[in-house]
Nucleic acid binder design. Structure first.
Lengths: 359, 359
DNA sequence: GCTTAGCACTCCATTCCCCTGAGTGCTAAG
DNA sequence: CTTAGCACTCAGGGGAATGGAGTGCTAAGC
């Protein structure tokens, strides 16, 4: 798509104005801009052409123009300028960026709420593994009443646990033996490396508690295979702040798809190329989101984990500002999650960083 | 407040009709009911009196009547009849009542979603302790890189864990000694029973790892003192399905208060007397909820824990049906959470019941 | 004395219509 | 190629008219 510089200027102006007013933009409004020195008639001609090209749309004959999805896409790819966060904005972002919890999952949930609050849009956050997980340590603790608790430490200091009911009577000594065997044979292996033969071999050396091996390892494999953490959505109702969702029915459609569909389409919620990705209107797979846009950004958590935060809003979204804010989060969240940062950690009062899973 | 039988009949009819239609009820509508054999004029007279008594309201002169908050309250206290769930309803409740997760907190969150879905209203779920918690077992596991993971088993098979950075170098033997000391001196004690002196004494016998004692015990005390689990809200946007919230601004007010205020007012979200409690309109402490009602119900989780589920909706709510549904949940959730139910467990395919906290 | 038919009255909600104003596309002149 | 001018379109807002549901009151009936 080839646009003349003037066409670009007009398209950018239309996007910018429409994003902030939510009203179709007329030729006069553009002609009135300070750095525009051609008449509204000229602009009308250009606008007609841009409409022809599919970059603009007209709600009705006697209205101004609004950007089409393709128009937004062009804007994002070629016209958008880096938004510089104002001092006030930076400050309030910085102030908000205090994660109270020390529990990993709880932190992710707070991240979602935070991003939602700071962008005034529904947001989501999710953590996913980049590396293959391995078990680091097995611990079997008797919980009385014929059951034990399996505490499983994974790479990345994740801790999982599960109550297991004992199918047979097992002594403490048996449990200790089993723990020892598991810790010597089953640690540092990815899910793929844990073969049936290996399991078999371990069962044979596990002594009286051998019957527990399948129970323990089933759970372990389940944990190792789990690529994604929970999907945390927050601030769905902020969608109602957007004029395009003043119609409750529309809002509900989108919000419901957030609650349900996206969960089923997890992969779609992760950016594919680059740290930031935009899905404009119909670019969204989910039909319910065809009039909405998603901006998602990746951030680094360390320990072979990566996080993704995203916001959902009307296609008429301030992509530049949202990107800037998400970028701020991505940068600083990464730092906050890096528990090994120690004293270098730029943000104060973070406590322990990322503890294992908990609560 | 003394009402004649006929007045009661009329009030009940008005509530029932209004609840299902959301339209003010006129005298004719009542006269048309099958078991009403007095004329609309009589009903008008009675309605005037009920209005006088403050049990009914009139949106405007030429409209029918709607129940006032006091009217709802009277209805709940004296007129409401047990709603018998239809076979279909029971079936869909039963079918929905499958908690996929085996993690406690995750289960509570699912309970919230479930209740919301089945009542078509925003719902919340929260767990709280009835008994004082005590530590059952301490486990310290080296996590490499100069840090350890504390795994703490509490009464009720709750498991908590936390990553602790070591201020000093500690050998595995030191850790084992510390574990042993903690397990022999610090288990089965409530938060109150863990005195400064006791801590002091333990520190003195803990050997080289004594400096870890405060770190470990601070976290332990924090866990022991925590009376409530997370507050899980779900389905906020279902409020939009209610005609009284077609005005987005009103819905937002309520939804926002759900997200924020209620968290701060935790105690208010637990029923005070009896297993079920109704808060009608202005009976709500939060000003934002003064036009809404809350129905909350307690259920038993076992292990010294209790759960509370509640729904939030317009004062025009089908209190009887909601109560029946919540009751169904309360009864069956209780059973599902009782992990000791074993084979008697009425609902199939529940897995392990309530495992410790996790993820 | 309670109940009810009849009736005048009130007032909300809907519809219709008109009008205004913003914005366009086109044409012709610069 | 740009721009002034102009006829045309159409959404949205502001009454006015209309219909209808519901009430309160009065007077007659059981």
């Amino acid at each position: 798509m080839e646009l003349t510089p003037r066409q670009k200027q007009i398209l950018r102006a239309i996007v910018d104005i429409y994003v902030s007013t939510a009203e179709p933009v007329g030729s006069k409004a553009i002609a009135a801009l300070p750095d525009v020195d051609f008449s509204s008639a000229t602009i009308r001609n250009e606008m007609a052409e841009l409409t022809q090209m599919g970059l603009l749309e007209q709600p009705h004959t006697s209205a101004g123009r609004i950007p089409s999805p393709a128009g937004y896409r062009f804007y994002i790819d070629e016209l958008m300028q880096d938004y510089r966060l104002s001092l006030d904005e930076t400050k309030s972002l910085h102030d908000a960026l205090q994660l109270k919890s020390q529990e990993f999952d709880e932190m992710m949930s707070q991240v979602g709420k935070l991003v939602s609050k700071m962008t005034d849009l529904p947001a989501y956050a999710i953590a996913s593994r980049q590396d293959q997980a391995v078990a680091k340590h097995f611990e079997l603790v008797s919980a009385g009443k014929g059951s034990i608790i399996l505490v499983l430490m994974l790479s990345g200091d994740e801790v999982k646990n599960k109550l297991i009911k004992l199918p047979v009577t097992v002594t403490d000594a048996d449990l200790r033996l089993l723990s020892a065997v598991l810790n010597s044979s089953m640690t540092d292996l990815t899910a793929d490396e844990i073969t049936a033969e290996l399991l078999d071999k371990v069962s044979r050396t596990a002594g009286p508690a051998a019957s527990l091996v399948p129970l323990v390892m089933d759970y372990t494999l389940e944990c190792l295979r789990q690529q994604h953490g929970d999907f945390h959505v927050a601030g769905q109702m902020r969608l109602l702040n957007q004029p395009e969702f003043r119609d409750v029915a529309k809002a509900r459609e989108v919000i419901e798809s957030l609650d349900e569909d996206v969960l089923a389409n997890l992969p779609a919620t992760l950016p594919k190329d680059g740290p930031v990705q935009f899905l404009v209107g119909p670019e969204n797979v989910a039909r319910e989101l065809k009039d909405s846009s998603v901006v998602m950004m990746r951030f680094d958590i360390g320990d072979g984990m990566q996080g993704t935060v995203g916001v959902v809003g009307p296609t008429r979204m301030d992509y530049a500002k949202i990107t800037a804010k998400l970028g701020y989060f991505a940068e600083n969240l990464g730092r906050m999650f890096q528990k090994n940062g120690g004293a270098e950690n730029a943000l104060p009062a973070l406590g322990e960083g990322k503890p294992g899973a908990d609560e």
